[in-house]
Design a protein around this nucleic acid. Structure first.
Lengths: 135, 135
DNA sequence: TTGATCTTTGGAATTATTCTAAAGTGCTTG
DNA sequence: CAAGCACTTTAGAATAATTCCAAAGATCAA
């Protein structure tokens, strides 16, 4: 079944990023299967486990670039911790305050009505809904 | 017009906090007029401008205590920066991504429908809506 | 292949926040 | 109102997350 395995290099290229060894390795982990939430640290550990040497700074670089290129979305839920979400489509989040866990939920069933107009001189960028829960 | 000026010491006491010189000074700035959004740094600068000596660590302590006591609400919008909001009622936020400005808007006109049930074993704590805008 | 450009890297630097131990203050009791 | 104890404040060190840096290494178009 040729063409089935995702071509990460191509994906990076079309995002305007050179497909370097470490960017491809990072992409493989990030986009290889299902949606993921990662922190720089967790991703760094995961990629190193695949025996490809990557510096933590490179992980930060790549995450920021991927985000800027629209391949990832950054979610800020707690001070001093931000997650990168491979799901860039419309969706929102559950955040479990006790343990910092994050779960997606689709936004297609969710309706938000009655939002005021953006402050003058600004235009809407995105609406983030974070449903905070506790155990 | 006696009794008009808010008694910050009493307010702190009923929140279970000793009304020390610096906590009262912080409360005065925070709750003295209209709702405010502050960071530890900005509040520190403001209070020092009133010629009351306060250490930055004390500002952090107080903000955390005020938040825990329900006098403040913490809003996390960007990695490495959290704001404290003196408005603890139901409301949501505009966040101007360019300059990090934060604006409240009331939630009474806003309806959110179709939220999924919280993950099993958890109960709802709060729903945060952040409307991100750009200039 | 080669050079120009872009990336990676380890470690230092920066930023936001918390911790620590000592000094100071508020509160309760007698 | 003096005493004592518990709670606070403080300056500076410590920590944690992230960015910066200059040098070494890849990638790519020609």
């Amino acid at each position: 079944m040729p063409g089935t395995s995702p071509d990460f290099a191509a994906r990076l290229r079309s995002a305007g990023l050179r497909p370097t060894r470490q960017r491809v390795a990072l992409a493989r982990v990030l986009f290889g299967a299902g949606h993921r939430h990662v922190t720089a640290e967790s991703l760094h550990a995961e990629v190193r486990a695949t025996r490809i040497p990557v510096a933590l700074a490179t992980v930060y670089n790549a995450l920021n670039q991927f985000r800027d290129a629209g391949l990832l979305r950054e979610v800020v839920v707690a001070p001093g911790r931000s997650y990168f979400d491979t799901n860039t489509g419309h969706h929102h989040h559950f955040f479990v305050e006790n343990d910092g866990e994050l779960h997606d939920f689709p936004s297609d069933k969710v309706t938000i009505a009655g939002l005021p107009a953006p402050p003058k001189g600004t235009h809407l960028s995105r609406v983030d809904v974070v449903v905070r829960v506790r155990r």
